[in-house]
Structures are given as C-alpha cells and as structure tokens.
Nucleic acid binder design. Structure first.
Lengths: 340, 340
DNA sequence: CTGAAAGCGCTTACAG
DNA sequence: CTGAAAGCGCTTACAG
C-alpha cells in the first residue's frame, strides 16, 4: 500500500509543530487562539493533499472508535434489516459507523461476537439478545460499556431497552380474529423463554381466557425450524379439535405454515385464518395477502440510538435505565377475512 | 470502562521485560530461544487474568487489522447473504473477521463505504461492484490493496474475480424453456451495464437467435423497481405478441413479476412459464414452485477467499490476476412445465 | 537467553 | 499564540 502522509509530514512541510496541526484539524483553533491565517493554511494544505488521519492511532490515543455494534438475530430478516437501516442512518448523522453481526439465536456465537467487538473497542452495543446471555450482558454492564437491548430483554437485568408491546399487540390481533368469527385459534411459536415470545404467548393466553376459548399452543425449537416446523404444524392441524385460525409468533414460522397449508390444500381464509407476528415482503404476494402485526421500526430505531448516545455521551450516568415500550399495529390483509 | 491490563503490567508483575512477554504471547518463544519455564509462566499468568491484547495498538504497530470488508448489493438478498455466510466461515478459520456493507447499487454510497473501510485499515476487500466504480477500483489496485471482485467485474480492469457463467446459465435455462414448448419468451432485466446483467441478456439473445425466435426485452432501472416494475411488466404482457414465458434477470424482479401475474390472474405455467435468475426462499412456497438458475455459492466463496488471501499473504504479487468462472445450474420446479 | 529503546500516528496537558 | 514532550499499547531490530 502507498505510504500515507502523517501529521508529522504536514507539520514539517508547513514548518510548524504537530501540535498546531492537530489542534487545527480537530477544530480547536479558535478555542486555543490560533491565527486565522495559520488555520486557513493548514486546512487548505491538508485538503489539497487529501490527508486522512490514521483512525487506528486516533482511537488508540482517545479510546474512542466511533463504531457501534448492532447484534441482531438475523440481518436477512425484514424486521432486523429494517431496524438496521434506520439505526445506521441515525448513527451516521451523529458521526458513528455501525457494524453488524447475526446471532442466529446462538448464545455461544453471540458471546463470541460480543467479545470480538469488545476487543475491537466499539463505543457501544445495540443487541437483540439470545437466551442464556445474562452473564455477558451483566459483564458489559459492570464494565460500563454503553448498551441498549431491543426486541427482547431480561426482566431480571436493569438495562436501557426498547421493545414493542408484544402482549398487547398479540392480544388485539387475536381479538380481531375472534371478532371475525374465528374460535379455535392456535398459537404457533418458538420453544423459547425470550421475553418477546413469552409476552406474545401471554397476550394470546389472556385473550383466549377472557373470551372463554380453549388455547392451543404449538412450540418449535429455533434450531429445528427447518426440519421440524412443517411436521409439527401438520400435526397441529390433524388433531380432533378443528383449528380455524393460526397465529404465528414470527414471520419465518408463518412462511413454514403457509408451506404446510399449501401442501394440505387448505384454503385461506375460507378454511383457516392466518396472522403473522412481524411482516414479510412476500406476505402481500400470497393469495390472499397475509395479515401481520407490524412493529414501528422507525420509532424504535430513534429511541435505540437516542438511549445509546446518552450513554456514550455520559448523559446517562446519573439517570435511571429507560425501558421504552412502543405500540405495534395490525397490517390487515385478506388472510383474516370474516369467517364464513 | 474497566482499566485494561497491558503487556507492561504483566511484565512488571512477573519481573521480566515487555519484550519477553510480547515474544511469548506471539508464539515466538521457541524461535528466539526463551526457556520453557518462562514461557509456561507467562502463558499461565496471562490466561489466569484473562489478558486480551489491545488490537488497536497491535494494528497500529503491525499495519494489519485482520479484518476483511465484504461489500454486496444487499445483505438481505438470499444470494448475497449466502455468500456472506460461507465467506465469513472460511475467513474465520483463517483468523480473519468479516465486516459487511450493502451498496444498494449506489456508486456514491459504495465509494463512501470503500473509503470508510480503507480509513479503518481493513486488510482487503471483496466487492460486488456497482456501475461507475471504476475509479475507486483502480484506486485500490494502484495502492495494492488486496481486492477480489465477484458476481460482476469490469472487462476493462484487470482484477482477481469470481463470477458464475451468466451467459451459459441463461442460455441453457432458456433452451430448456424452448424444449418445453415455449416460444415467445420475454426477458425482464435491469437497466444496467453491469457485466452479469450484460451476460445474462447476451445468453438470452443468442439462444433466441439460434432458435430463430424473436427476442423481447423489458429493462427496469434498479432505483425504480419498487415503483415501476409492476407497471412495466404489465405493459409487457399486454402487447400484441402473446408472451408465453418470462425469464427474470434477478430474484427480486421475479417477485415483482409474480405479483403482477397474481393481479392479472394469469396461471403459471398453464398461461405462462417462469424462470428466475437466482433462487429465493419463497419460490418453493408458490403454487407452482418457481424454477430458478442457482449459483454454486459454496464453491464461489471458497475461490473468493482463496484469491484474497493469496494477495494478503503476498503470494499473488508475481502471478497474473485470476478470473474464475463457475458453472450455474437449474433448480427445476413446476413453473416451467411442458407447454400445453 | 533477555532487556532497553525506538516507533506506529495520533492527542493533550504543560510550559513559555 | 505556539512547541516540546509524554503517552495510548503494542512489536521488533539491536545490543549485550
């Protein structure tokens, strides 16, 4: 690679000290009282030669990298990639760069990612945590690493966090199904104790209870979604109780469900109603379109970045942790039409 | 954050010099001839206190970051996220970390990403280039930054590159359509001069010519796919020539096409045959499943990492640039059934 | 066999 | 108003 010019070279060329160059480059010229002429001269020259400071050296010295690490379940998922897009834009405006990692819901992998990025001295973390990550999170907390959890959190750990009202959103979605005439509503979800799945299940159980309906829950392990989801959903549909609606706890479970319904030649919504938690770009392509609970991604992203920057800027040092809950809403399509 | 322990602290604690500690930590103990006992002692102690070297300092000193930058069109796209997964695994095995960026086919954004990561001193780049990026690529080349292009390349620039045989894959896919009895095969593609789109179009035009069929091409600008794709595809289907098969140049164009076919109530493959270049997880969910040209992602990833590491390890300094072309294959589903 | 010292390219108290 | 110098935490030629 080409030899880069350093602040020393510039100082030598201009016959001034590196202190002066550094001060000017960091906009502290006024503050310190350097002459405008000198300021001009340095700025003009550095621009002319296209000088770029060595960020490694800068970071080593200042202890700041201006990098934020965003850890999501899967960056290819529409919900997470949408959050990533917004967060990146907001962070960029504030002078930060975002670096991504996909946890794939694997605690060991996630733990490694965290330690990897910590070793790389990122200035803060935004994490959609997996299960069994309490130790790592507590660790970050105890080292005062800026950290915001989103999508899910640990009830037992006091953190800044941003989540959707999983309980209420699910409650309302199911209530809508009931109003449409569906009764035997099954809930297909992950075998998971993560808070968001716990709350979605809670909302479902509560609304069923309130309406005197019998709940029916099918849980599927995250790791075995690819192999087992279809089989398990088929089982669910072949029990004595005739399920007339399916609520899927995540969008990828919905995709699996649709595959099964197609296989079994079950018509939506004539034979069965369908709702997905979280939208997906293809849901509008199906016949009929699939109704989904949608999270207010832009708002969540704003809150996330705001909370993290408060920590990075030490404005959060004295305040209590903030736990923000934003409202979800329903994107109604035809998969939840009036039950005939 | 907690005060980290440095190599100096370790040396002080053990009453030896930092040179010795550094040498041992870098496995040069034998090479230099340090006693096994000392070696043991240092290793044991550093492990005990969980010492982690400051990578910023290390990189500043060595000029290496052990980070590779992977720039793709869209990390949420199945093809690119699949490449990313394989490349990350292979790179990790070799001690490298992968950092991602999505170009969204925007040259200005891509140019910024490149300069951003260059400023961060990544050890090399793997890029699926956008149009109008020649200057940046030449720039990297002239600075001898390790670089591999994939998915597309610039015929006029001599680089290490890995691409699928776009021309032949398309040729064979269309040939299959013709064998199935389709005649009025339209080609829906991007308004783009990128090599991969150019070659796919070339394959289509050639096979149509060979079979004495009249080509029909619809081009759509990448930026306006969301707004215009559906309208343009509808236009294509409402001309005098009755199109009986559609070949889509990318998987997201296929999704748009399927939306249109659904709107117009056109049955696949009864009324029209469909093939997509590049697969998509939902293509098997549609009725009928959508036939796709698939790229050998694992193989491509291996080649990409191999070429890049040859450059990083200076094994490529003397050799010629390698231009690798891998074979695509057809994943046949029901959207290309025998024409009735 | 082991250590003192220079240097990677910055920033920032401190001195004048 | 401006500069010499220390130091961030490493690695590595050089000396002994």
């Amino acid at each position: 690679m080409k030899k880069k010019v350093s602040i020393k070279d510039i100082a030598a060329h201009l016959n001034i000290s590196i202190t002066t160059v550094s001060l000017i480059l960091n906009g502290k010229s006024k503050e310190v009282g350097l002459s405008d002429i000198l300021n001009e001269k340095v700025l003009k020259y550095t621009k002319e030669i296209g000088y770029k400071p060595n960020l490694l050296a800068k970071s080593l010295r200042t202890g700041k990298t201006k990098i934020i690490c965003l850890l999501v379940e899967n960056i290819a998922d529409p919900f997470f990639s949408s959050i990533a897009g917004f967060v990146e834009e907001l962070a960029t405006q504030r002078g930060y760069k975002i670096i991504y990692g996909s946890t794939k819901n694997d605690p060991a992998k996630t733990s490694e990612l965290i330690s990897l990025f910590k070793d790389r001295h990122v200035d803060g973390f935004i994490i959609a945590p997996t299960e069994e990550l309490e130790a790592d999170i507590n660790n970050l907390l105890s080292e005062h690493v800026p950290l915001v959890l989103f999508d899910r959190y640990y009830p037992a750990i006091d953190t800044d966090q941003v989540v959707v009202d999983n309980f209420d959103s699910t409650y309302k979605a199911i209530q809508m199904l009931i109003a449409q005439g569906y009764k035997n509503i099954a809930f297909v979800t992950l075998e998971s104790d993560q808070s968001q799945m716990h709350d979605r299940l809670g909302g479902y159980l509560k609304v069923m209870e309130v309406h005197g309906l019998t709940p029916c829950v099918q849980k599927i392990a995250y790791e075995s979604v690819e192999q087992d989801a279809c089989t398990l959903i088929k089982q669910l549909l072949s029990t004595d109780i005739p399920v007339d609606a399916l609520f899927f706890g995540t969008n990828y479970l919905t995709l699996k469900g649709l595959e099964v319904l197609k296989d079994l030649d079950i018509a939506v919504p004539r034979d069965i109603g369908v709702i997905s938690f979280d939208d997906h770009e293809v849901f509008k392509l199906f016949t009929p379109g699939i109704t989904a609970v949608v999270q207010p991604v832009a708002l969540m992203s704003e809150k996330i970045v705001e909370l993290l920057l408060e920590q990075i800027d030490h404005k959060a040092d004295v305040r209590q942790k903030k736990k923000i809950v934003v409202p979800g809403f329903l994107n109604v399509r035809n998969s939840t039409g009036q039950k005939k």
